[in-house]
């Protein structure tokens, strides 16, 4: 029994790290711009492909290429925002949903045309390594690395938001758009910045996923749905809330998968059930402050 609990804790923590990575970019962009980016999963997918090709043709380790991939992601995200979303910021929110969804469709099918639907994966040595914690509990090195990076990303992001000038401006925009604008903050520029930052988190996540999950043009959507659930669970505008949401979801899924027969099949359904319960009890999510009309 103790061993089972220990195992559940270990697996939940490691999965929670992966989920945090998936959600943190989406959460940042939403917190600031109030736009749900339906193309976020596809941005992750492009990061994974970039890391894959760097690995296969240039023999660069995904953890090394992560930096370049993140920079490319930031530039790409910034441009994407400037070229498209920036122009319809004042339209009803639902148009933005449609636009980002259309962008996702474009990104996905460009990937299908360029790289076909074949599955790929990077194969650095640490992706095939693990340690025994006890006789039957094993920690996969790849997932531990993902966990570490998730922690690092969140700490960096929080520090940036708290102590840097730009970060504080970002928070101001997130909290009150009109007031921030009155304080002389260029709201649109902050939007573009946070969107670029969000994409850079997305592509970096992709680089990490490249050795954890099979890479296909269709990998983005399930990631998006998970990230969606997580940020709603944690509260839309809170990074800490997102982290809590990610670990909560991971723990719920893992526990069900271990305890209930055929649990892994039910886990997802139960996770969504949990989501509805949380929303009913606390409509703003666990740590969220976004008003009822978000």
């Amino acid at each position: 029994m103790a061993s089972l609990i220990f195992q559940i804790v270990v697996d939940s923590l490691l999965l929670g790290g992966v989920y945090t990575l998936m959600a943190v970019g989406l959460s940042l962009a939403f917190g600031v711009t109030r736009i749900i980016n339906f193309a976020h999963g596809d941005i992750v997918m492009y990061g994974a492909y970039a890391a894959f090709f760097a690995f296969v043709s240039l023999n660069i380790d995904p953890l090394l290429s992560l930096l370049f991939v993140a920079i490319l992601g930031a530039i790409g995200g910034y441009l994407l925002f400037k070229l498209t979303l920036d122009r319809i910021l004042d339209a009803p929110g639902i148009n933005q949903v449609l636009l980002t969804f259309g962008l996702g469709l474009v990104l996905q099918n460009v990937a299908v045309i360029l790289w076909t639907g074949d599955e790929r994966s990077t194969t650095p040595s640490y992706a095939f390594d693990s340690w025994f914690l006890s006789d039957d509990i094993v920690v996969a090195k790849g997932r531990l690395i993902a966990f570490g990076l998730a922690v690092a990303f969140v700490v960096l992001l929080l520090a940036w938001l708290r102590w840097s000038e730009l970060g504080r401006a970002t928070r101001a925009v997130s909290q009150n758009r009109a007031a921030a604008s009155l304080m002389g903050i260029n709201v649109r520029a902050m939007y573009a910045l946070s969107f670029g930052l969000s994409s850079s988190f997305g592509t970096a996540t992709g680089a990490i996923m490249s050795f954890l999950l099979p890479i296909t043009p269709f990998m983005g959507f399930p990631i998006l749905v998970k990230a969606f659930a997580i940020i709603i669970l944690g509260g839309l505008d809170s990074i800490v809330g997102t982290v809590i949401g990610a670990f909560l979801l991971a723990t719920a899924e893992t526990t069900i998968a271990y305890v209930v027969p055929q649990g892994i099949g039910w886990a997802e359904g139960v996770a969504f059930f949990l989501l509805v319960i949380v929303l009913i009890v606390r409509p703003t999510g666990i740590l969220g402050t976004v008003g009822r009309d978000a």
Partner: peptide, 14 residues
Amino acid sequence: RLRGLFFAIATLAT
């Protein structure tokens, strides 16, 4: 009690 995006996500979840 749910509005806007929260309602939307609840429907997606169900």
